[in-house]
Lab assay of single mutants.
Amino acid sequence: MAAAAAAGAGPEMVRGQVFDVGPRYTNLSYIGEGAYGMVCSAYDNVNKVRVAIKKISPFEHQTYCQRTLREIKILLRFRHENIIGINDIIRAPTIEQMKDVYIVQDLMETDLYKLLKTQHLSNDHICYFLYQILRGLKYIHSANVLHRDLKPSNLLLNTTCDLKICDFGLARVADPDHDHTGFLTEYVATRWYRAPEIMLNSKGYTKSIDIWSVGCILAEMLSNRPIFPGKHYLDQLNHILGILGSPSQEDLNCIINLKARNYLLSLPHKNKVPWNRLFPNADSKALDLLDKMLTFNPHKRIEVEQALAHPYLEQYYDPSDEPIAEAPFKFDMELDDLPKEKLKELIFEETARFQPGYRS
């Protein structure tokens, strides 16, 4: 834990890192770190609560700039109880001085990944967590956004079992017609939660990839272990087919990539493993919904509104309290091709509203 900075004593240090967030945020305490930044909790002297502050230093890398800009653009436009918001952003007053960006968010005690390492969940908890994931996802999908990296560590939890989806750095506007060349190379989302079509096709992607990830998360809540822990690309596919069985001819016809289709045709026939054999203690309604989410063919996979209306979630289902976005989200430009200098300018502009004396 960093010592509390005395008023006016300059930035606090946390594990050798400068955290320049005073005077409003003090009493910093280390939480963890990701690929390009550290997260601390801090005391907000204005709202009198502890908050989470993520320090991001992305400006050396085009990919990190892209992810940072995506996350900020999306989260500043989203407003939903099951999606983490941005409360404040701290950065230098000029673009030349801006080396880091500090993002202030609600402090959540833990995440689903940490929880599943230590606790076996009751059916009631599984049901409530799944409902909140789908409630947040309904809003995301209504904005025409794909999260693309749903996994237990991106689901934040607090002691009252509130759940918030975080990390929109890989999110995209849904565009089933656009052929994202190089899709697989830039697709760094965790393999275990990846839909089979991501490994088999490169053309376009749809909201059904997020539903697949939610199915993987439900299976993990039922058993405290990942359902498809593939060691590499082909191993991942083999794990999936080992449980779902061989795809039907109709399902194979959806695979545009001939090499991928021929690979699947070359494999020995596998039978589907019954879900109640894998999860003998699970609620039968939970397994019915799991089956509809972990469907090989993305066109037959359940959609988020149908999933919310499934009998497993009937005690929570309330369409009048499951809000959607006001308007579909649009990125003005494809960020993939922009140089990091341009992305830095866009991050600077996007964060201006939090600067003292800002006038829109």
Score class of each variant (00 low, 15 high):
residue 5 A to I: 05
residue 6 A to H: 05
residue 15 R to K: 14
residue 18 V to T: 08
residue 19 F to H: 12
residue 28 L to T: 03
residue 29 S to V: 10
residue 29 S to Q: 00
residue 33 E to K: 12
residue 36 Y to D: 15
residue 39 V to C: 08
residue 43 Y to A: 12
residue 44 D to E: 15
residue 48 K to A: 13
residue 53 I to V: 02
residue 60 E to Y: 13
residue 66 Q to L: 15
residue 67 R to A: 08
residue 67 R to I: 11
residue 68 T to P: 15
residue 70 R to I: 01
residue 72 I to P: 00
residue 80 H to F: 00
residue 80 H to T: 00
residue 81 E to D: 14
residue 84 I to M: 05
residue 85 G to I: 12
residue 86 I to V: 00
residue 89 I to D: 08
residue 90 I to W: 00
residue 91 R to S: 15
residue 92 A to H: 03
residue 98 M to P: 12
residue 108 M to S: 05
residue 110 T to M: 06
residue 111 D to A: 15
residue 112 L to G: 09
residue 113 Y to Q: 07
residue 114 K to S: 07
residue 116 L to Q: 14
residue 116 L to G: 13
residue 118 T to A: 00
residue 120 H to S: 06
residue 128 Y to P: 06
residue 128 Y to K: 05
residue 130 L to C: 13
residue 131 Y to D: 00
residue 132 Q to E: 15
residue 135 R to M: 03
residue 136 G to Y: 01
residue 137 L to S: 06
residue 141 H to W: 03
residue 146 L to Y: 05
residue 152 P to T: 13
residue 153 S to G: 00
residue 154 N to G: 03
residue 160 T to H: 11
residue 160 T to P: 12
residue 165 I to M: 01
residue 167 D to L: 01
residue 176 P to I: 06
residue 177 D to I: 06
residue 177 D to E: 14
residue 181 T to R: 11
residue 182 G to K: 03
residue 182 G to P: 03
residue 186 E to G: 00
residue 187 Y to G: 00
residue 187 Y to H: 07
residue 190 T to M: 09
residue 191 R to T: 04
residue 193 Y to G: 06
residue 194 R to A: 08
residue 198 I to E: 03
residue 203 K to V: 10
residue 203 K to Q: 13
residue 205 Y to R: 10
residue 205 Y to S: 12
residue 205 Y to P: 06
residue 208 S to A: 13
residue 215 G to W: 09
residue 215 G to N: 10
residue 215 G to T: 02
residue 216 C to D: 06
residue 218 L to I: 07
residue 224 N to R: 10
residue 226 P to W: 02
residue 228 F to P: 00
residue 229 P to R: 03
residue 230 G to M: 06
residue 234 L to R: 09
residue 241 L to Q: 00
residue 241 L to H: 10
residue 244 L to Y: 01
residue 247 P to S: 12
residue 248 S to V: 10
residue 251 D to Y: 14
residue 252 L to K: 10
residue 254 C to I: 06
residue 264 L to G: 00
residue 267 L to D: 01
residue 268 P to L: 12
residue 273 V to S: 10
residue 277 R to M: 09
residue 285 K to F: 08
residue 286 A to H: 03
residue 288 D to E: 15
residue 291 D to R: 03
residue 294 L to W: 03
residue 298 P to E: 11
residue 304 V to Q: 07
residue 310 H to W: 10
residue 310 H to S: 02
residue 317 Y to A: 08
residue 320 S to R: 01
residue 323 P to R: 10
residue 324 I to P: 02
residue 331 F to I: 15
residue 332 D to L: 02
residue 333 M to L: 15
residue 339 P to K: 12
residue 339 P to I: 03
residue 340 K to T: 06
residue 340 K to N: 14
residue 343 L to T: 05
residue 344 K to V: 04
residue 346 L to D: 11
residue 354 F to P: 05
residue 355 Q to F: 02
residue 357 G to P: 02
residue 357 G to I: 04
